[in-house]
Design a protein around this nucleic acid. Structure first.
Lengths: 213, 213
DNA sequence: GAGGACTATTTAGTATACAAAGCACTTTCT
DNA sequence: AGAAAGTGCTTTGTATACTAAATAGTCCTC
């Protein structure tokens, strides 16, 4: 995409994530065009993109709304994401080199630093987490897999998941990342896959049952 | 989508499937607009749709080309499709009712009829095959899963796969469908899943090594 | 003759005006 | 009063003209 399309996309995406455009809100092209300071054309492109990424749903009569999430949707996304990320990490295990491993270690260190800090820096945590998963996906070297996962790694979901985490759960998640990294360094696809499956599954349950700590 | 967009989409899709728009061909909006008898706007929408479905790939500089397929791409798609269809049939196993089972049986019967006929009717075979898989997907009742699989059930691939099949292989595929149907009727998710995984995996190998019969 | 920059041509992106389709409200008929 | 049809308003779809970017081809320089 180009300038105006990107602008519209970023603008809408961030407003959806922040909740300014709440779930269920109807997205009207003209209104959004004014909001983003571009014409309807790039707004249309942005909406279609967000629709492909499941941030937006479309009715039969072609009207767009900010997607709403119930527990079934949530479980569905986590299960699918679990399958695909497990496959990704399996592929990554046979492709990871020293530079990948050190990249993963760096992301893990960043995450630990955030967790151990006195005031919790959510954006930094999310960035480190995203870097870890993105690096694995990149190492898996599968365009199609990346394209599918792109539609499932839904930031609002992850965000809420992290909010629901206690510090102990965050630490546990960090340790899982470290162990996955070890499995990759050992080039053990089975180990990596099993760990990733458990990792994603734990995130689902953390999200379904609010943290107790 | 609406009239012009649909028209452009169908037009382009069928020309890609037929090979008239060969893999590697650059898709130029203006040219295609003339071809489809609509303006560039709906053509753009159609191209983006085909891109999401992986029929079309896009370069960094936003130019579009008909996707080319090598064996790695093929394997990747089959593996991903295998995972997702296995999950679909697992869900379907707990949701299938009598009407679903009879629908699957009908598709299977249609497939058998085509295989046993003297001159092989490829479109009829593909239709029966598609009906079987579509019905399972529908029974799985997961919008997101459907959306992901929609991007992977690539007709050109399936088409070539069937061409590569010998009559014996076709019969084997038919029998697998029958057995999957039985597993669903028994509401046995594990059985259904294992069968589906094997079914898709066999299709991959049939495609990779041309038929000997 | 090769490399690099400039220009022309091709192609995609954007804005805008107009057309068509939905939706909601009102009004009318039973 | 309820249902159905009509009408106007809202929203999306399409065409087209214009803008920006990228590519390829040419010419100049070394």
């Amino acid at each position: 995409m180009s300038k105006a399309s990107d602008q519209a996309y970023e603008e809408l995406r961030s407003r959806i994530l922040s909740g300014e455009l709440a779930p269920g809100t109807q997205l009207k092209e003209e209104e959004l065009a004014t909001l983003c300071g571009v014409s309807r054309t790039p707004v249309r492109a942005a909406i279609r993109q967000l629709e492909a990424e499941l941030f937006v749903r479309r009715t039969d009569s072609q009207r767009s709304f900010v997607a709403e999430w119930n527990n079934d949707d949530l479980e569905e996304v986590f299960v699918l994401r679990g399958m695909l990320e497990a496959y990704a990490v399996r592929r990554a295990a046979t492709r990871a080199n020293a530079s990948v491993i050190s990249g993963l270690n760096a992301a893990n260190e960043a995450m630990r630093t955030v967790i151990e800090a006195l005031d919790f820096d959510l954006p930094a945590y999310l960035a480190a987490n995203a870097r870890f998963h993105a690096l694995i996906l990149e190492t898996a070297a599968s365009d199609r897999l990346a394209s599918l996962l792109g539609k499932l790694v839904l930031q609002p979901v992850v965000q809420q998941t992290v909010r629901a985490y206690s510090r102990e759960q965050l630490l546990r998640s960090y340790r899982e990342h470290v162990e996955i990294t070890t499995a990759l360094a050992q080039r053990d696809p089975d180990w990596a896959e099993a760990l990733m499956t458990a990792h994603i599954r734990r995130a689902l349950h953390a999200r379904l049952e609010p943290a107790e700590g």
